[in-house]
Design a protein around this nucleic acid. Structure first.
Lengths: 195, 195
DNA sequence: CTCCAATCGCAACGGGTGTAGCTTTAGTGT
DNA sequence: ACACTAAAGCTACACCCGTTGCGATTGGAG
């Protein structure tokens, strides 16, 4: 992020207002319906100001994304790798199903597909998420449930990938059972020493 | 697709010209750079005509997508499930790496994320692809390499999902080794009876 | 308290996208 | 051949997005 030369006062207020408005607009109208003008009006900040500081719609999203990347999320701890991994995947699935979070998250993915800036932000976001989630795999290794050679982050990737694939590429629905199955498949591969 | 009342002659020519132009523009400038005007100019068809028949950019993509869905693709036949499945995944990976096909395919995915029309078209496309690819799994079952309870299409999904996930969601690079590993993981899960 | 630079608000405008009304062209049936 | 009509071409325009130049405001340093 750029260095804010005047972090206190109006600049900060403007920034917060715009961020909030971006998330609200995203939740209401999705990525397609997100325009700089609407965000400006909703936030009470002048259009020109938003253009100057954020550049365009993708800039708004990239900024909101960095905000979201900072927030931690609840890593499950059920006592077994199987339960934990299922929990992680289910968390992803249900997140996109949530009527409030879903559209926002989807918008992030859509935006990253068109804007290098948003893509970089999303990449960093998943980097962080993978690191956090990999913890459930590492715990499994410590318990002796998985071979020590396992690539923890890769297990997470393989586990969640089918959910994203169904949602954003093949455009199929994703049931809880589908999510469980994806987690189980990653686990089976890990146990077999493939990952 | 809609019923063409005058399938022969000019209408058909216009349609072909626009489809060709769409693909060409897509290959050159990607989804972001695709505009109705450019397609109109390149195809020699008037702007208003394109708007009337295709409505907008997403309509153009959905149409081109249906065209692409019809084309078959080379299913590998190496003699083992492992080789075949790796071949399928590698075909996907290298397809997106190809300087000509890559941008077009990516555009399809991006467009489907914003347009219900394109989403439906892409869904149908993958439905067909999965059916074709599942054949390598079914052959494996016949050879006794996999349990008969296996869900052939699900194996395909799990095998290719990590490639798409890396490319379009996490925005990571995908090496050939990554592709192989994804195929092997799906196979291990299938052998373990999870899929 | 005062000054000054950073930031924001404002009004006007240029460019491009999508639309409307009408005319012209060319398939299709008799 | 001829008439009929669906479909494409054409012109003009309304609208919206993003930009620019300038003046007003505000936060922070001394």
């Amino acid at each position: 992020m750029e260095v804010t030369k005047r972090p206190g006062g109006r600049s900060a207020r403007v920034r917060d207002a715009v961020r909030k408005a971006t998330l609200a607009e995203l939740a209401e109208h999705g990525f397609r319906g997100l325009t700089v003008e609407n965000v400006a009006e909703r936030s009470g900040v002048h259009k020109t100001t938003v253009y100057r500081r954020w550049g365009n719609v993708e800039g708004l999203i990239a900024d909101a994304l960095e905000l979201a990347a900072g927030e931690p999320w609840p890593i499950p701890d059920t006592g077994t790798v199987e339960g934990d991994l299922r929990g992680v995947v289910e968390l992803v699935r249900s997140g996109f199903e949530d009527p409030e979070l879903g559209p926002v998250s989807s918008a992030f993915v859509a935006a990253a597909m068109q804007s290098p800036e948003a893509a970089r932000a999303l990449h960093a976001f998943f980097e962080a998420r993978h690191d956090q989630s990999a913890q459930v795999v590492r715990r499994g290794v410590e318990r002796g449930e998985l071979p020590v050679t396992v690539d923890a982050r890769e297990v997470i990737r393989v586990a969640v990938a089918p959910v994203y694939y169904r949602l954003f590429v093949a455009h199929e629905s994703v049931s809880r059972r589908d999510a469980d199955r994806a987690a189980d498949a990653a686990l089976a591969a890990a146990r077999a020493g493939v990952l």
